[in-house]
Amino acid sequence: MSNVLLPMDTCRQLLRALKTRYQAASKAEKTRILEEFILISGYHRKSAIRLLNGAVTNSSQQSRLATARSIYGAASQQALIVLWEASDRLCGKRLRALLPQLIPAMEKHGHISLNPALREQLPSCRTSFI
């Protein structure tokens, strides 16, 4: 059998289908399943073993986590990026402390123009996404 590489979502579907079978299989069956998965997916042996031994997860659970993280709108993100660049890319912790002084200075010199609601929201933003 030739080494065929699958698209990522197809590989994830295959992994979900094989996980429970792999975890319940005997040693000889595990070897066969593992070798087939390696040939089809292109994963290295140790990576494939880790994936097949991992807990069976629900993909909807992972997608809910990804959507829960995006709590700021595009305007907030763009404003934070401009402020972050102006601060010479400070870490999030220091940028957050600097925002109350940086926002008025940037507005005073015409480098940024924020509406009042956004101006109030920015100092309370978690800046770890930058």
Rank of each mutant, 00 (worst) to 15 (best):
N3C: 00
V4L: 11
V4R: 12
L5N: 07
L5C: 01
L6A: 01
P7I: 03
T10H: 13
C11R: 15
L14Y: 04
R16W: 04
T20V: 11
Y22M: 08
Y22H: 09
Q23L: 06
Q23C: 06
Q23W: 08
A24E: 12
E29Y: 02
E29L: 04
K30V: 04
I33R: 10
E35D: 14
E36V: 07
F37Q: 08
S41I: 10
S41H: 11
S41E: 07
Y43I: 03
R45F: 03
S47Y: 05
A48R: 07
R50G: 11
L51H: 12
L52N: 09
N53L: 12
N53V: 05
G54K: 11
V56T: 15
N58D: 15
S59A: 14
S59R: 14
S59F: 09
S59G: 09
S60H: 12
S60F: 10
Q62M: 05
Q62C: 02
Q62N: 11
L65T: 08
L65W: 04
L65R: 10
A66L: 13
T67D: 08
T67R: 10
T67A: 06
A68H: 07
R69W: 01
R69Q: 14
I71M: 04
Y72C: 10
G73S: 11
A74M: 04
A74W: 01
A75I: 02
A75F: 02
Q77T: 11
Q77V: 14
Q77P: 00
W84E: 09
W84Y: 13
E85W: 02
S87L: 03
S87F: 02
S87D: 08
S87T: 09
D88P: 00
D88E: 13
C91M: 03
G92V: 10
K93H: 12
K93I: 11
R94P: 01
R94W: 05
R96D: 00
A97Q: 15
L98A: 14
L99G: 03
L99N: 06
P100S: 04
I103F: 01
I103H: 02
P104A: 03
E107W: 04
E107Q: 15
K108N: 08
H109T: 14
G110N: 08
H111R: 12
I112T: 03
S113D: 04
S113Q: 06
L114A: 02
L114T: 03
P116Q: 04
P116L: 02
L118V: 03
E120F: 01
Q121D: 09
Q121K: 15
S124I: 01
S124L: 05
C125Y: 00
C125W: 00
R126L: 05
T127L: 13
S128H: 05
